[in-house]
């Protein structure tokens, strides 16, 4: 029972890392990535191949997975973000990118195609996942409060005004994409060493959807919101043993419902803090709603 619970927590934390990455990108620059599963997959395969075929140290493999993902992020982000195109173009390009990565994984020698990589050493334990999550959350928080994070918020709110203030649109967007890709890659690496078997069909649009749903439901412009939403999205269906297709039906409905009724999400533009929780508890629900 204890191992079951710690398993669910580990699993949730892995997705929290990826969701925080996406939150930095979508939530703070207002661009929409539909192929984020690809970064997860690249991280998982890079790290998995390194430990499986070359016996590389786990931590080194994890870092390489993140680095590789970040590199691919630059490759895909450079042409699509350079021209300051509409966000629609970017969303469509990431959609294609996600599919292209999956097709490549299915047809490459080193990834063993659709058969996947079985028997990757199971190095990801709860303390490992928790440690990485804390580091990622800390870096994300610092990023948001840094010069670049504040610039990203300005870009999201009004990129024309932001540009007139001297913010380099391309630089800010690319930086947050790379950060988000690295988070995705690290999460993928942890995932590969947790389930110890990976195959291309694990990294479909289902995963991208789940991540996007967490970010939107958690609230754009927040880091803790998406993190909380991810835990809810992973843990509750897992505990209740809901069939995965009905989960997706619910995610879809939830996305529409949030957009129609509460576009700011659970914690839009706010962060979860102890002071906030205390205030919310003492003042009752009205105060919490008043700010929403």
């Amino acid at each position: 029972m204890l191992s079951y619970i710690s398993g669910i927590i580990t699993f949730s934390l892995i997705y929290v890392i990826a969701a925080v990455g996406l939150a930095i990108f979508t939530g703070f620059t207002g661009l929409f990535s539909l192929g984020h599963a690809a970064f997860f997959a690249i991280g998982a395969y890079t790290a998995g191949i390194l430990t499986y075929f070359y016996d590389v140290n786990f931590w080194l493999a994890l870092a390489s997975g993140g680095a590789m993902s970040g590199l691919v992020g630059i490759l895909i982000g450079y042409p699509t973000l350079k021209a300051k195109l509409r966000s629609d173009y970017f969303a469509i390009a990431t959609l294609g990118f996600g599919e292209a990565v999956r097709v490549l994984l299915e047809n490459l020698e080193i990834t063993q195609g659709a058969r996947g990589l079985p028997g990757i050493p199971a190095e990801t334990t709860l303390p490992v996942a928790a440690g990485v999550t804390v580091i990622v959350l800390w870096v994300a928080r610092n990023f948001v409060h840094s010069r670049y994070g504040r610039a990203a918020v300005a870009v999201r709110e009004d990129f024309v005004a932001a540009e007139m203030m001297g913010i380099n649109l391309f630089q800010v967007r690319l930086l947050s994409l790379v950060f988000s890709a690295i988070c995705g890659g690290v999460a993928g690496g942890l995932f590969a060493h947790y389930v110890s078997f990976i195959q291309p069909s694990m990294f479909t649009s289902y995963l991208s959807t789940q991540l996007t749903a967490s970010v939107v439901a958690g609230g754009m412009g927040s880091i803790t919101g998406p993190a909380v939403a991810t835990v809810i999205f992973i843990a509750i269906p897992e505990v209740l043993r809901v069939a995965s297709m009905w989960r997706l039906v619910a995610y879809g409905l939830l996305l529409v419902a949030i957009m129609v009724f509460r576009p700011q999400g659970l914690l839009g533009f706010r962060e979860l803090s102890w002071a906030g929780v205390k205030r919310w508890l003492t003042l009752g629900k009205a105060a919490g709603q008043g700010r929403g």
Partner: peptide, 10 residues
């Protein structure tokens, strides 16, 4: 776009 994607998934 998010609403549209939600509809598609649903």
């Amino acid at each position: 776009m998010i609403s549209a994607m939600g509809t598609a998934i649903f």
